[in-house]
Design a protein around this nucleic acid. Structure first.
Lengths: 150, 150
DNA sequence: TATTGTTATACTCTATAACTATA
DNA sequence: TATAGTTATAGAGTATAACAATA
C-alpha cells in the first residue's frame, strides 16, 4: 500500500492517543481492582444485555476467557448472569445497581483524569474532533442484538 | 466536575477509537507472537536508546516487568541491551536490524488494517484530525532524555 | 543512603481442549 | 451435528520483595 502523509500523521496521533487513553483507563481500573477488560465490559453492559458469546465475539475474546471474567465480576456483585428467554443454552450478562454506580464513578474519574488533555481544545474543537472520529469508529454492539428468528 | 456535552461526545469517541486501535494492534501483534507492550516498545526504541528505568517509567510498568519483556525480545533477536556511557548501573535498550525490519512490516500491516476505517475520511479531514489530536497528546519519550549533569 | 537493574515468586488474563446441555 | 457455556490446564504479563552493583 502506498504511504500517504495525511494518513501517517493521523495514524500516529490515533495510536498515541490510544495508548494514552489506555494508560488512564488501566490506572483507574487498577485503583478499583478492575482490569481494562472488566472496565470495558462494565461500559458495554451499562445499557445492553448481551449474551456471553456475543460479548466475547465483540471483545475479541474466547468464550472461556469471558466465563472467568464475568464470574469474577459476579462474585464482586457488579454483574449478574440471566437466562435468555429465547435460547435455553444462552446466558445473558446484566449489570447490577452496584455495578452501575461504580461505572458512573469510573466515568467521572476518567473524564477528570483526561480533563487537562482534553481541556487544551476549545469546545468547538472538541465537537469537531468527535465528528471526525465518528466515521472512523467501528459500530458498537447494538443495544438489542438481532437474533435468528424462530 | 460539571458534565459538558462537547467533552462527553469527544471522550466517547476517543475511548472507542482507543479500543478499536488496541484491538488491531493486539491482533497484528499476536500474529507475530508479540504482545501489545512489546509492539509498543519496538515503536519507541525505533528511534531512541532509552535506559531501562526511563522506558519503564514511560510505559507505566515496573522495572522488573520490563526486564522480562526486554529479555524475551532480546532472545528473539529484536532488541539488545547496551551499556550506558554515563552511568555504569544503567542499561540502554537498542533495536536490532531484525527488530527494525519487523517494526516496519508491522507498521504497514497496521496502516493497511485500519485503511478501511481511516479511508472514510477525506485527506483534508485526516489532516484536520491529526491537528486536533496534537494538543491532546502527552509528549512522547524524548529521543535523547536529559540526564543529571556531572 | 539512594538508584539501577535482575531474579524469585505469585496472581491475573488469555487461549486450547474436553465436557454438558440445548438447538 | 452444531452451538452456548463452563471447567481444567498452561503460557505470558504484571507487581512485590529481596538482592548486587554503582552513584
Amino acid at each position: 500500500m502506498a504511504p500517504d502523509d495525511s494518513t501517517d500523521a493521523m495514524l500516529d496521533g490515533l495510536v498515541r492517543s490510544a495508548f494514552q487513553i489506555m494508560g488512564v483507563l488501566t490506572r483507574i481500573g487498577a485503583e478499583h481492582d478492575l482490569s481494562l477488560t472488566q472496565l470495558r465490559v462494565l461500559g458495554i453492559v451499562r445499557d445492553r444485555q448481551p449474551r456471553m458469546s456475543d460479548l466475547a465475539a465483540f471483545l475479541g475474546l474466547d468464550k472461556s476467557t469471558l466465563s472467568g471474567l464475568i464470574a469474577r465480576a459476579e462474585r464482586r456483585g457488579l454483574l449478574a448472569r440471566g437466562a435468555s428467554p429465547e435460547d435455553k443454552r444462552a446466558v445473558i450478562v446484566l449489570i447490577t445497581d452496584a455495578g452501575r454506580e461504580l461505572t458512573e464513578r469510573l466515568n467521572e474519574e476518567v473524564r477528570d483524569a483526561l480533563a487537562p488533555a482534553t481541556g487544551r481544545l476549545e469546545p468547538h474543537q472538541r465537537h469537531q474532533l468527535a465528528q471526525l472520529l465518528e466515521p472512523v469508529l467501528s459500530p458498537p454492539l447494538p443495544p438489542a442484538p438481532r437474533r435468528h428468528a424462530h
